[in-house]
């Protein structure tokens, strides 16, 4: 029998669990763990959970974003960023993770999945450098 991909496994667990009440959920989870151990995939449980999170996020319209800046952002800026992300990705909810990075020199950098919006000073200087070299 062909091996099950982690992605398929996560999707199966999600499909069988997302509209169940608590009592049923218990049973579903037990079965899921049983299958995972039977297929010798317990070592991959971290990846399965990651994948499961991704699937759940997608279906619930949740966008996870990592925002880096030089200084701590004000509340006003945060709500603005949140609105921007919601509008751009048509998301209902956002989960924002903030990071302080002195090396960015200024501006902010937003990372969503594999997309990056980089408006930091550091990036701008780098672009200017490239521009002057190629000119």
């Amino acid at each position: 029998m062909a091996t099950i991909s982690i992605n398929n496994l996560a999707r199966a667990i999600y499909e069988s669990s997302h509209d169940k009440d608590e009592a049923e959920l218990d049973a579903v989870m037990k079965n899921a763990v049983n299958i995972i151990s039977k297929k010798h995939l317990l070592s991959k449980s971290k990846e399965i959970i990651n994948q499961l999170e991704k699937i759940a996020d997608k279906n619930n319209g949740v966008i996870r974003a990592k925002i880096s800046s030089k200084i701590k952002l004000e509340q006003k800026a945060i709500t603005e960023i949140e609105d921007f992300i919601k509008k751009r990705y048509k998301a209902q909810n956002t989960v924002l993770e903030f990071q302080i990075n002195e090396k960015l020199l200024g501006g902010i950098k937003i990372e969503i999945g594999d997309e990056i919006i980089d408006t930091t000073l550091k990036n701008k200087i780098k672009k200017l450098q490239n521009y002057l070299i190629t000119k």
Binding site: D114, E115, I116, I117, D118, T119, K127, L128, L132, K135
Partner: peptide, 19 residues
């Protein structure tokens, strides 16, 4: 000269796909 060249430089914030 440098000033003139820098004047022409335009930068737009763009969403980039990275891996």
């Amino acid at each position: 000269n440098l000033k003139k060249q820098i004047e022409n430089f335009k930068d737009e914030a763009k969403a980039e796909k990275v891996g």
